[in-house]
């Protein structure tokens, strides 16, 4: 069971490796990945350096190419695949059909992981990508219950990777247009959800107003701990209920520590930690806890219990400081 950790820069990558990550995923400094934020990600030279360092430590490195090539600009995405091949990355995380086609034709030796942005949630969808592009692994969208994950794993179409911890997307990934509805840019088209340039905080008396492209998505008290503003975690009203409330989801993070034995038993190949946009301190904290948890489990699966200090450590770095099992737990749905 692989522990796969995010890196937004070399410092995070080294921290993650030091804290016990088995593999690292990262993106280039452009819109070929869905965490295209200023000051984040890797230039081609840094990618090569990151790959050398990761391999010198006996770990693996995956390049995330999880956006969709734009008509007339496809070359940027193809070049990213070429760069990854030169850097000898261990896998490519890809969502777009044309890009999977390019990578599987040009570099059949590089393993392909189907990105969560491809939104494949069933055995049939996985079979499509397996037969067409020989994908080795798929990252599951955060829409399946634990039972559905188990059922899918039993089909053994490809290896499965699941989100274990981090910011919680509550919509089927890769098919969510909420960000572009308000800002014109979505993860698919613009490389990020709720691009920072559209976010504005306003202090009004003892309230903080959060605006996304001038749309008021939340009102909070000044001392309230806020997550990164996204449309699905705003406070809204209905005709019946004029008091603003979290009608889709509140700012919570996903934390599946308590599901670890079940995920292991289901044969999940990899546990993904979300957060390429987060600080090295976050990466360090989360990686360390998950390393300990996985090692504890593998040592003695029967006796596994979530330690309180693990949960406390994770809660500290969670969005809104509240964690949930999300869709894995039927009651959440």
């Amino acid at each position: 069971m692989e522990l796969l950790c995010p890196a937004g820069n070399l410092a995070s990558l080294k921290t993650a490796i030091n804290a016990g990550a088995d593999a690292i995923y990262l993106g280039l400094k452009d819109d070929t990945n869905a965490r295209s934020f200023a000051g984040l990600n890797f230039t081609p030279a840094k990618l090569a350096e990151a790959a050398r360092y990761t391999h010198s430590q006996g770990r693996k490195i995956f390049l995330t190419l999880n956006t969709f090539p734009k008509p007339g600009e496809e070359g940027r995405w193809y070049r990213a695949v070429d760069l990854a091949a030169q850097a000898e990355v261990d896998a490519l995380i890809v969502a777009d059909i044309s890009l999977l086609e390019y990578a599987s034709n040009r570099y059949p030796h590089i393993p392909l992981h189907l990105s969560v942005q491809a939104s494949a949630t069933s055995a049939k969808a996985l079979q499509f990508y397996k037969q067409a592009f020989n994908i080795e692994r798929a990252v599951l969208p955060r829409v399946l219950s634990m039972k559905q994950v188990r059922d899918l794993a039993k089909e053994q179409v490809v290896d499965l990777e699941v989100f274990a911890f981090g910011s919680l997307c509550i919509m089927a990934e890769g098919r969510c247009h909420l960000s572009s509805w308000v800002t014109g840019q979505s993860p698919n088209t613009g490389g990020s959800c709720s691009p920072a340039k559209y976010v504005r905080w306003q202090e009004c008396g003892n309230e903080r107003h959060t605006r996304l492209n001038e749309v008021l998505i939340d009102k909070s008290s000044l001392d309230e701990q806020m997550g990164y503003p996204v449309v699905c975690k705003g406070r809204y009203c209905t005709k019946q209920e004029q008091q603003g409330s979290f009608l889709l989801e509140s700012p919570t993070s996903l934390n599946t520590l308590s599901l670890l034995p079940e995920l292991h038993q289901a044969g999940i190949a990899s546990l993904k930690i979300e957060g390429r946009q987060r600080s090295p301190a976050y990466v360090e904290q989360v990686t360390r806890v998950w390393r300990q948890a996985i090692d504890t489990l593998l040592n003695n699966p029967q006796e596994f219990n979530v330690r309180r200090d693990w949960d406390q450590a994770l809660a500290k770095v969670s969005e809104g400081q509240i964690t949930t099992l999300g869709a894995y737990e039927r009651a959440w749905q």
């Binding site: 955060r142 399946l144 509550i170 919509m171 089927a172 098919r175 969510c176 909420l178 869709a327 749905q333």
Partner: peptide, 8 residues
């Protein structure tokens, strides 16, 4: 615009 496991 979006689909979720959750029924809103």
């Amino acid at each position: 615009l979006a689909h979720s496991a959750r029924c809103f």
